[in-house]
Nucleic acid binder design. Structure first.
Lengths: 170, 170
DNA sequence: ATTATCTTTCAATAAATTTTGAAAGTTCAG
DNA sequence: CTGAACTTTCAAAATTTATTGAAAGATAAT
């Protein structure tokens, strides 16, 4: 397979997988394009290579920057802005975990704490089931929260090494 | 807060979070409802409590069964089918990891292996960047695949205990 | 200060996904 | 076998989400 075809396939597939992860297709495609581009690209390059509109490119590039996956790059002598993606995949994974934790887990835990304190007769089966389930979800979430915090802080080598040792991967 | 209100909030919130995870709102809401119901519910119960149509209830219940999160329960003397959700949240998490791994990681790895073998002049920067990035993503994915396999097999106690020890949780 | 270049916004439009509900299918008691 | 009880299907409709592109907003060179 030649580069052009492989690149097109990667962009299409990465876009498809992105949609399973709550990321929209175009955002994932732009990410894929930048991941495999040796040099930073302009908004125009992105528009051309993916056949998308200016507004769409702008919006999704901004979102990628929000997620900490893409950076604006200034090229001396150029008026335009250029964009480049973090290529170290471990850093990418850590960044995604960090953002999702912030957007999801950190929002859910306070809700679960509140719901876990529902009033009612503890002899009532419905109350008991509700309370127990919510408390279990809360405990699980709090444990996950602590685990992910440690992961986020850990450096790549330590993280990989520990997991390999722990889980016996090779 | 009283049970009815807490239950409604939990269903709404769980539904909202579900959409971040590629799960549709209704499916997550049905899951939430079954999670906090002490006894199995019929399709009719689900339709009534969530105000959704018969077709919608049927379709999403089937999908929850596909995911291994809900089971059909036969109640002696009843003609209808009843449904109940796995309440052990560690089992739920493991089941979700297992299914997503199957649907996503296991599909992506063969693609990455193929794309990693793109032909071209290794002195060409574009070819080099492409190959290196894909290989890194592939290595990461293969490591994640092994790690998740071990997690899926591990029992809850071992898994929790190991993570606590490893990451210093309390 | 003017103008050319580039970026952002956002209302309109298009596309994708979800939901409905009526009809068809199934199962089982009598 | 018949019909009542229940489940499944699926085309149409509703809803949600993503995309476009033109206009407005910046920015910087001259």
């Amino acid at each position: 397979m030649q580069l052009a075809e492989a690149k097109a396939r990667f962009i299409a597939d990465w876009g498809r997988f992105g949609t399973n992860w709550g990321i929209n297709r175009t955002m994932a495609q732009i990410h894929a394009l930048l991941l495999v581009s040796p040099d930073p690209l302009s908004a125009e390059d992105v528009m051309d290579q993916l056949s998308i509109s200016r507004g769409n490119a702008n919006m999704n590039l901004r979102e990628l920057i929000d997620w900490g996956l893409v950076q604006k790059v200034l090229i001396p002598g150029e008026r335009k802005e250029f964009f480049s993606a973090e290529k170290d995949i471990w850093k990418v994974a850590r960044q995604i975990v960090k953002e999702r934790k912030k957007r999801e887990l950190d929002q859910m835990i306070p809700v679960l704490r509140e719901l876990g304190e529902v009033e009612g007769d503890r002899r009532d089966k419905a109350v008991r089931t509700f309370t127990e389930t919510i408390q279990n979800i809360r405990k699980f979430s709090e444990q996950a929260d602590r685990t992910l915090d440690t992961m986020i802080k850990a450096d790549e080598h330590w993280f990989l090494g520990s997991l390999v040792k722990l889980f016996g991967g090779r």
